[in-house]
Design a protein around this nucleic acid. Structure first.
Lengths: 203, 203
DNA sequence: CGCAATTACTACGCCCGCGTAGCTTTGTGA
DNA sequence: TCACAAAGCTACGCGGGCGTAGTAATTGCG
């Protein structure tokens, strides 16, 4: 019973192998994080475990590296969405625009954003912490912007500025989720129009 | 080396044992769902595995029973929060009141609601599905109410009624999350005042 | 063309959670 | 009081994911 030897996988330099392994892992996530085992990733990448262990010390490191990569890319997209000026537009238009850019980012990289907005089963604590961290950063920026906007508009002293940022973020996230779960019904345009209407109602 | 025999646990009728085991499981959840193993639950309840297996066929059934119990209790609380009439109050007041009742429910059973609003690591697909189902039901009710409210107020044709319900739910959930994570800063009163202000702004 | 470095593979051992077979204690009612 | 049903317990086998020690194929460079 000569155990048939497996065909050698194509040799790859570590850099490339690393990316390929992360891609393999990413592709498994939709089925739930628990299915992202060292075994399954190796299999998915058509490679054996020791190869995986050459590049990532253990499961934790693999997951961590994967999430770092994706979170980084996601963050960049959000940063791009945040308005920085009120010179040209009124604050509520600025908010609507930010939501527009954000929703478009979601539409363009749905898999990535599903990870953030609708995390699958078994999402590691670590990742949620990372997302939360980014969220807090974003929130701070939104709050600054909101404060600026309020000052510019004036006379909205009855609006709780400490909650406004949270609400804006909540609405943006709601929009992102809706466009992910039901893109036909909830188009970017429709969502943006709605949040614009809400923002407008406030002033 | 006579293996010292463990002291017999107090004998309990199945009904009672069942509840106790579910309580034990519930108490483990904050540390993440993965830590809710048959072993850990048995240990927590000061009982051995076969006892557990007498009452729950397998891990899946245990978790399922636990979630069913908690989801049921949570649902009752929400149903109670929903307004049913507009006779006495204006629609935006009705919404604010609903949020008030809801936030109070969260404050009164934080562990339960943390499970729903801030699910811990390893939350089973099954539970998320269950929550989602309830959510959809609630959403439908909210949408009905919102439609009714809009009709009553009249002249708000520019407001996207298909999104209003989602937004209301999103704000309510945001409120629940905030009161869970930072109860000192975000008191029920403050949260309610804020959503009331938003609702008011719309009309 | 052959050899050394690099990359990949085989084959284990370990641990831990699941689930079960079969025995032991408790405590109630006849 | 004691028998026997109900409730618990011990002790194991299985499977699967983790991580590693040692070996084999590939490939590029002289």
């Amino acid at each position: 019973m000569s155990t048939t030897r497996r065909k050698y996988a194509r040799r790859l330099p570590p850099e490339q192998r690393r990316e390929q392994l992360l891609d393999a892992a990413l592709s498994l996530i939709p089925a739930g994080f628990d299915t992202v085992t060292m075994e399954s990733v190796a299999k998915q990448a058509q490679v054996t475990k020791p190869v995986l262990y050459d590049l990532f010390a253990n499961r934790s490191e693999l997951i961590s590296a994967l999430l770092e990569r994706e979170a980084g890319r996601a963050t960049e997209q959000v940063i791009a969405a945040l308005p920085t000026d009120f010179a040209t537009r009124s604050p509520d238009d600025a908010f609507a625009d930010a939501v527009r850019v954000f929703v478009n980012a979601v539409v363009e990289a749905p898999d990535r954003w599903r990870l953030v907005l609708l995390p699958p089963e078994g999402t590691p604590r670590e990742f949620r912490a990372q997302v939360e961290l980014v969220r807090v950063g974003i929130l701070a920026q939104i709050e600054d912007l909101a404060a600026l906007g309020l000052k510019e508009l004036g006379g909205l002293d009855d609006l709780d500025s400490g909650l406004l940022g949270h609400a804006m973020l909540a609405l943006a996230e709601m929009s992102g989720r809706l466009v992910l779960t039901d893109p036909d019904k909830f188009t970017p345009d429709r969502l943006v129009a709605f949040v614009a209407r809400i923002a407008h109602g406030l002033s």
